[in-house]
Simulated assay, not measured.
Amino acid sequence: MWKDSSEIHSGILCPLNTPRFVCDEMLRGLGEWLRIAGYDTHMPEEGTEDRDVLAMATADNRWLVTRDRELILHRNGPQHVLLLISDRQTDNIQELTIKLNLDWLHAPFSRCKRCNTPLHQGPLPGSSAPPDAGQQGVFHCPTCRQTYWKGSHVKRMRKRLEEFNRWRRAGASGT
């Protein structure tokens, strides 16, 4: 039970809806992994001012994932900023997973890694499937026209997502 509203607790944050993110330019690689996992993740253009990045997160009701300590000090920072500590991507993924109990198998390979648009099944209209796609499934992005298919890289990427989820189980059990 909370003693008073000013008490601060650490641990897993529990979002009520599927989280949506903004990753600043320090964490573009993490942003790509969030997209691969199926999370709606915006990545502003390089050089976008901090206040503008925070305004995007606030306006769209997204978590702003950053390593920039200054962002937490802005007026809307405490409500929208998830500050990560480490300089290493793997450590950032672990920290985010534990903080949000994030499921890395949420909707894998359902969003374009380049532009964040939900993918459509099948090849691009008017084109054929890549020759090495076989019967494994082809998807395309209607916005940037990137074609994706389930090649051996998908198996390796899915394995990484499963590895990220091991921190979820550890964080959820309190270890």
Rank of each mutant, 00 (worst) to 15 (best):
K3F: 05
K3S: 11
K3R: 12
I8D: 00
H9L: 11
S10K: 05
I12M: 13
C14N: 14
P15I: 02
L16Q: 15
T18V: 13
M26C: 09
M26F: 11
L27P: 07
L27S: 07
L27K: 03
R28P: 00
G29C: 02
G29P: 00
L30C: 02
L30Y: 02
R35H: 03
I36W: 02
G38H: 05
D40H: 09
H42C: 15
H42N: 14
P44Q: 05
D50Q: 04
R51P: 10
V53I: 15
A55D: 14
A55R: 15
A57R: 08
A59T: 15
D60S: 15
D60T: 15
N61K: 15
R62G: 08
W63M: 11
W63I: 14
L64M: 05
V65N: 04
T66V: 04
R67I: 07
R67H: 02
R69Y: 04
R69C: 01
E70G: 13
I72T: 14
L73D: 13
L73E: 14
R75S: 09
G77N: 01
P78H: 08
H80G: 05
V81E: 02
L82A: 09
L83G: 06
L83F: 05
L84C: 07
L84S: 05
I85E: 14
S86T: 03
D87I: 06
R88K: 11
T90D: 14
T90H: 12
T90Y: 09
D91I: 03
N92F: 04
N92R: 07
I93N: 01
I93A: 05
L102T: 04
L102S: 02
L105S: 11
H106L: 03
A107R: 15
A107Y: 11
P108W: 07
P108F: 08
F109K: 09
S110Y: 07
R111Y: 05
C112Y: 08
C112D: 10
R114L: 12
C115D: 14
N116I: 02
P118L: 10
L119W: 08
G122H: 04
P123Y: 05
L124Q: 11
G126T: 03
S127K: 14
S128C: 12
P130K: 01
D132I: 01
Q136W: 12
V138Q: 04
H140C: 04
H140K: 06
H140Y: 06
